[in-house]
């Protein structure tokens, strides 16, 4: 594995740990979109179906896959649990978490049926998960843009998550040169994903950083 791939995976891991530790330590779910988190559960469950084939790639690969599936489910459980412990915050979340996910689900499902490596259940599911992942952050970004304020938690989380797929792009270029292979679907979706995140950081920079600089006494 090349350094971009390792760093990419580590930042992906870090993003989830940042999210979980913050929810646990601050005991708040403010600013988090449950829709995005449910979409990630769907992403990991549909992508890692090969776990059931037991023809595993490597120990590292399997452990990471199991971690991503279980941690994404755990985040949704934590958010659901807050329904009783943080009733007000939970209600606020539902009121601001209003992105229409059915459109992304439909769009990515169509994309998966049209663009895939092989017309089999596992490959369509894999393709669906890759396309879905590229846009799964949209409900979270939509929620953030509606509330107009961003907690440092959500920004750190989104930053680490955005970094992960961005680092995968030099990884793919590296692999193309050293191994002569490139996954065009992963590459195309990875570029879309990176663009979605860079748009967020551009807006974040313009709105939050510049504004706070202007507001200085």
């Amino acid at each position: 594995m090349n350094p971009f791939r390792i760093l990419g995976d580590l930042s992906h891991l870090a993003s989830i740990l940042v999210l979980i530790f913050n929810i646990k330590s601050t005991n708040t779910i403010e600013g988090i979109s449950i829709k995005t988190q449910v979409l990630y559960v769907l992403v990991f469950l549909t992508r890692y179906l090969d776990l059931f084939s037991f023809r595993l790639v490597s120990f590292y690969n399997t452990i990471m896959k199991l971690f991503f599936i279980s941690s994404s489910i755990y985040v949704v459980v934590l958010l659901q649990r807050s329904k009783t412990t943080q009733a007000v915050a939970y209600k606020t979340m539902l009121l601001t978490d209003t992105f229409k996910v059915q459109y992304i689900l439909l769009g990515t499902l169509i994309a998966a049926f049209v663009i895939n490596h092989k017309f089999t259940f596992v490959e369509i599911a894999w393709s669906f998960s890759v396309w879905l992942e590229s846009v799964a952050i949209l409900p979270q970004l939509f929620m953030l843009s509606k509330s107009g304020k961003s907690k440092s938690l959500t920004v750190h989380y989104i930053f680490a998550l955005g970094l992960y797929r961005t680092l995968y792009i030099p990884n793919w270029i590296w692999r193309y040169h050293t191994e002569g292979v490139i996954d065009k679907i992963a590459l195309a979706a990875g570029i879309i994903q990176t663009l979605v995140y860079s748009d967020f950081f551009y807006l974040y920079y313009k709105k939050v950083i510049k504004r706070s600089a202007l507001n200085l006494p």
């Binding site: 992906h12 992508r47 790639v57 490597s58 896959k65 991503f68 490596h117 092989k118 490959e123």
Partner: peptide, 10 residues
């Protein structure tokens, strides 16, 4: 028949 595709990334 092409062999099964292996997705070795995450």
């Amino acid at each position: 028949e092409p062999s099964e595709i292996v997705h070795d990334e995450l």
